[in-house]
Design a protein around this nucleic acid. Sequence first.
DNA 1: ATAATATCGATAACAAAGTATCGATATGTC
DNA 2: GACATATCGATACTTTGTTATCGATATTAT
Lengths: 210, 210
Amino acid sequence: MEGISKESLQRLPTYLRYLNELHLNGIESVSSTTIADRFKLNPVTVRKDLAFISEDGGKPKTGFSVADLVAEISEFLGYNNTQDAVLVGVGKLGSALLGYKGFSNYGLNIVASFDCKTDIQIDSTKREINNISMLPDLVKRLGVNIGIITVPAESAQAVCDLMINSGIKAIWNFSPTHLITPDNIAIKNEDMAASLAVLSQRLTAILKNE
Amino acid sequence: MEGISKESLQRLPTYLRYLNELHLNGIESVSSTTIADRFKLNPVTVRKDLAFISEDGGKPKTGFSVADLVAEISEFLGYNNTQDAVLVGVGKLGSALLGYKGFSNYGLNIVASFDCKTDIQIDSTKREINNISMLPDLVKRLGVNIGIITVPAESAQAVCDLMINSGIKAIWNFSPTHLITPDNIAIKNEDMAASLAVLSQRLTAILKNE
DNA sequence: ATAATATCGATAACAAAGTATCGATATGTC
DNA sequence: GACATATCGATACTTTGTTATCGATATTAT
Ligand SMILES: NC(=O)c1ccc[n+]([C@@H]2O[C@H](COP(=O)([O-])OP(=O)(O)OC[C@H]3O[C@@H](n4cnc5c(N)ncnc54)[C@H](O)[C@@H]3O)[C@@H](O)[C@H]2O)c1
Ligand SMILES: NC(=O)c1ccc[n+]([C@@H]2O[C@H](COP(=O)([O-])OP(=O)(O)OC[C@H]3O[C@@H](n4cnc5c(N)ncnc54)[C@H](O)[C@@H]3O)[C@@H](O)[C@H]2O)c1
């Protein structure tokens, strides 16, 4: 079987949230059409997405079992075996992420945070902030695979290199730089400027039409 | 001319940052190959992207004028005429965004923030937090087009509806819900779970190969 | 001047993602 | 029990995005 496409993969968490809602409301089955309507998608797209992760598939006339889908998507996305992560850069954004409860739903657990100015800042969640020099040892000791970068752009590449040298295999980068990484490292640049570009382009189109 | 593709559009801010760096270092021209190498892209992809926004195009052997590209991409992305925005939900994430200096580079200016608990919280930037009930009037008065949502998922749809009723035309949603909006509203759901799904999928693949 | 070369833009080939169509099949209705 | 219908999965088609190819053209070196 081919790997799932990036687009399908990104739709799965959205489906899952919706399915959890249905589940909570006691709804036991759902059709691809219903899901598609909710998210302005084509039903065929939804069926193809679900075909990747669903063992039994859907039944004619009734659709898919909500409970099954919830279990299968959760499993597929790795929400059942939580991954540890470290975060570097406990500033405004880093603190917000550290204090965010939502990540546990997504199988992510931030086990330690690091900054260069540990003496000054206090994390709102009262978790300890370690000096960045402690990172390599801790990462190696705990076998942490994921690193989150929330430092200023100028420091991001250096932090990235340090993470990789310490054994980190996946990097989630919130600083506005496209990090340079070897091919055996997973990297996701969370580029707000790119998002904003898409949004304001659409806004311009809408304003022009009115 | 056809509209630019979403993918191209999202690459432009990345190019721009790089070009600004080159510009700062006094480099006057750059080839599509050089840009492509920097971001692990195909040179043809880069040339096509630049063809959309560049008036004169590049010159054989030398490439593109850095200064021209910087000016043209900035203009194309609307960085020269700043758009006003309002933010609702001055919690952990909302405060971080409010205090973020970077948005001014992207032509975004947050002119006011709102919450339902204005008396309790103090924004780190000392800007005033308005009660959510003030939103419609202010948005209408200032003609604000963009709304940023950083409230809990449960409240997000209600805030979204309020924004739309007040005249907001573009919504940047950071809560983990896919908001339901009419077609004449631009919406960007900033779904961290989707990003994380992509990252951890790649991580899994990498770990499997080792 | 002439030749060598890096680069461009245009066009064409390819790949991937999305959409339409259609026969098969559960489920509920007459 | 026959019939209508909602839905599925498979296949085919369309659209969109990426990559390869190639002739044309500045620039540099001989
Ligand atoms: N604040 C936001 O809402 C926001 C939004 C989008 C992107 N970003 C990006 O996220 C990053 C962080 O933004 P912020 O607003 O939280 O900035 P911030 O200045 O509040 O925090 C940055 C933190 O990183 C620490 N730091 C700097 N260099 C370091 C190093 N080499 N090692 C360890 N720690 C180091 C600083 O001490 C500081 O605590 C920036 O790159 C920013 O562009 C922020
Ligand atoms: N904190 C993070 O790093 C993070 C990361 C990803 C996504 N998010 C999402 O962003 C949103 C905000 O997260 P947070 O951590 O800042 O939460 P938070 O609880 O710190 O802040 C939420 C704020 O919204 C306000 N609010 C609630 N209902 C409101 C309403 N109807 N009108 C106006 N204001 C209202 C609350 O008073 C509070 O100040 C959530 O949806 C969260 O899932 C947060």
